[in-house]
Amino acid sequence: MKNNILVIGGGPAGLEASAVLSRMGYNVILAEKEKRLGGHLAKWDRLFPDQTPAKEVLDGLLDGIKDVKCFTETDVNSINLLDRSFNAMLSNGITILADAVLLASGFDMFKAEKKEEYGYGIYEGVMTNADMEQAFREGKTFSPAPKAIGFVHCVGSRDEKAGNPACSKVCCATAVKQAIEAKELYPDANVYCFYMDLRMFGRHYEDLYLRAQKSGIRFIRGRVSEVSETAEGRLLIKAEDTLSSRPVKVTLDRLVLMAGMRPSEAGHKVGRQLNLSVEEDGFFSARDGFLSLQKSKLPGLFYAGACTGPKTLPDTLHEARSAAMEIDRYIKENFRK
């Protein structure tokens, strides 16, 4: 008889781990709270560093889960650990007895309206990175064509006032990618990136940055302090240029806020039922930070992806595969002796 594995979360980590576990011969049940699978990836247009269409990656992930039982629009109403297995009641009325659980609850986007000074939800021209991706994905163009567009890095990240001193890891590369795409769409527009440090750490990320500079995107090292609206309805941005040690004012038509990653509230709901520990940043705490990254402190409960902290998509997929292997080892050691 096949062992049941419950995967909570149908984003990239949940999908990839489900596919690997399914190929290993397990009976995988995936519960996703949203209507569609794919998590944030399903809402994205193109991916850094090479602008691969997000749909291409998502389709590849979905191809791998043909033998997985997927329940969308389904919450985990309750979950508890019995003797060796987990008993989970789903919101669709189905009860699952799983020998292992993979928590792949991902992340929530930082609510950009919390940075009140940036005027998200107040000024028409202020949008988030997710809004920008949606516009790209839907082929929506702004009319009249913007003359100036700004990107603010680190919105809700590396910001103690916002309750998150940590870096969200993907915003710099996303901002540079979106800035390039905006410049391609509106070649006459002046495009600015307001950054603290550019954390272009991955392979080909630096190439992306160089490409942005060559295409005329202006990088201003400093934080935006406030946003307001001019009499003409444009956005007036006050920021600091820390390289020239001067305050700057720029008038823009669009301001894109790079909202960072926050722990998933849906993930926390599951975590609270199982007494899973979280670290100071609110993300789940792995058994240790080197050798047991995919293991929780609870036997049979594993993690993959951004539920243990901000990660890039490739890192998330690596973790998903690694978690699947850890689950396989756990099942073999505990259920097949």
């Binding site: 939800g121 107040i122 000024y123 028409e124 609206e229």
Partner: peptide
């Protein structure tokens, strides 16, 4: 200006 945003 989105008045509803301010009200929130």
């Amino acid at each position: 200006m989105i008045y509803e945003g301010k009200k929130k």
